[in-house]
Amino acid sequence: MADYIVTERCLARNTQKSYRDTCTLLLPFISAKVRKPTDRLDVEDIHPSRVLHFLAHLEEDRGCSVQTRNQRLTAIRSFARFVASRDPARLAWCAQIRSIATKKAAPEPISWMTRKEMEALLAVPDRQTPRGRAEHALLLFLYDTRARVSEATMLQVDNL
């Protein structure tokens, strides 16, 4: 599975870690439910109803957000896709796992910095050093233009 994630899917390192963490949580959970050691689990032990219980456990018992729950579900779906690509006899199992719906999450309210907070942030860089002046200028630019970081990183001297 690790080779699949790294070489075939070319997933980012943080995604790889997230998938690893999902397995670290899921497998012991399933193992306890089916009363089998983790190393003796079969793919069918990861039944859709158990996956749903796992996802509920994340939210209710571990206090995870809906976004974290959905992220863990994405990792489980990726595992199902991996299994199906290696063992076509398990396509039905894969389809059941991949049909588990993500949960809708209310968008986080956008909070803006108060003037005092922005002034405190602008006071942090040491403007006596070249780096401090550059950081201060960048913060002022981002604040004054309301530019997104992606927009600021694509900015060229000609644009100024």
Rank of each mutant, 00 (worst) to 15 (best):
residue 1 M to K: 10
residue 2 A to N: 12
residue 2 A to W: 11
residue 4 Y to A: 05
residue 4 Y to K: 04
residue 5 I to A: 03
residue 5 I to Y: 04
residue 6 V to S: 05
residue 11 L to K: 05
residue 11 L to W: 00
residue 12 A to R: 15
residue 12 A to H: 06
residue 13 R to A: 13
residue 14 N to D: 09
residue 17 K to N: 15
residue 19 Y to M: 08
residue 20 R to M: 06
residue 20 R to T: 11
residue 24 T to K: 13
residue 25 L to A: 10
residue 25 L to W: 09
residue 28 P to R: 04
residue 28 P to H: 05
residue 28 P to D: 05
residue 31 S to I: 00
residue 32 A to N: 09
residue 33 K to V: 12
residue 35 R to H: 15
residue 35 R to S: 14
residue 36 K to T: 09
residue 37 P to L: 01
residue 38 T to M: 13
residue 40 R to L: 13
residue 41 L to W: 10
residue 42 D to H: 15
residue 42 D to F: 12
residue 43 V to A: 12
residue 44 E to T: 12
residue 44 E to G: 04
residue 45 D to C: 13
residue 45 D to K: 12
residue 47 H to Y: 15
residue 48 P to Q: 04
residue 48 P to L: 00
residue 50 R to E: 12
residue 53 H to V: 00
residue 53 H to W: 11
residue 54 F to M: 09
residue 56 A to F: 00
residue 57 H to F: 14
residue 58 L to C: 09
residue 59 E to Q: 15
residue 60 E to V: 13
residue 61 D to E: 13
residue 61 D to K: 12
residue 61 D to M: 03
residue 62 R to Y: 00
residue 63 G to C: 07
residue 65 S to A: 15
residue 65 S to K: 14
residue 68 T to Q: 02
residue 68 T to L: 04
residue 68 T to K: 05
residue 68 T to W: 01
residue 68 T to S: 15
residue 71 Q to A: 14
residue 71 Q to C: 12
residue 75 A to F: 09
residue 76 I to H: 07
residue 77 R to G: 09
residue 77 R to L: 03
residue 80 A to T: 07
residue 80 A to Y: 05
residue 81 R to N: 11
residue 82 F to L: 06
residue 83 V to P: 07
residue 83 V to Q: 06
residue 83 V to L: 08
residue 85 S to N: 13
residue 86 R to Q: 14
residue 86 R to N: 10
residue 88 P to G: 00
residue 89 A to S: 11
residue 89 A to T: 10
residue 89 A to H: 05
residue 93 W to R: 01
residue 93 W to M: 08
residue 93 W to G: 09
residue 94 C to Y: 02
residue 95 A to C: 04
residue 96 Q to K: 12
residue 97 I to Q: 02
residue 98 R to V: 11
residue 99 S to I: 01
residue 99 S to W: 02
residue 101 A to L: 03
residue 102 T to D: 06
residue 102 T to N: 12
residue 104 K to C: 01
residue 106 A to E: 15
residue 107 P to L: 02
residue 107 P to F: 06
residue 108 E to N: 10
residue 109 P to L: 08
residue 109 P to C: 01
residue 113 M to H: 12
residue 114 T to H: 10
residue 115 R to V: 14
residue 117 E to W: 04
residue 119 E to T: 09
residue 120 A to R: 03
residue 122 L to T: 02
residue 122 L to K: 09
residue 123 A to E: 06
residue 123 A to C: 00
residue 123 A to S: 13
residue 124 V to D: 01
residue 125 P to N: 06
residue 127 R to H: 03
residue 127 R to A: 11
residue 128 Q to A: 15
residue 129 T to R: 11
residue 130 P to W: 08
residue 135 E to F: 10
residue 135 E to C: 07
residue 136 H to I: 01
residue 136 H to K: 08
residue 136 H to Q: 06
residue 136 H to S: 07
residue 137 A to F: 07
residue 137 A to I: 03
residue 137 A to S: 07
residue 138 L to A: 11
residue 138 L to M: 13
residue 141 F to E: 05
residue 142 L to M: 12
residue 142 L to F: 04
residue 142 L to P: 02
residue 143 Y to S: 04
residue 144 D to V: 01
residue 146 R to D: 08
residue 146 R to N: 10
residue 146 R to T: 07
residue 147 A to I: 01
residue 147 A to V: 02
residue 148 R to A: 11
residue 148 R to M: 05
residue 150 S to G: 05
residue 154 M to A: 14
residue 158 D to T: 14
residue 160 L to T: 13
residue 160 L to E: 11
residue 160 L to V: 15
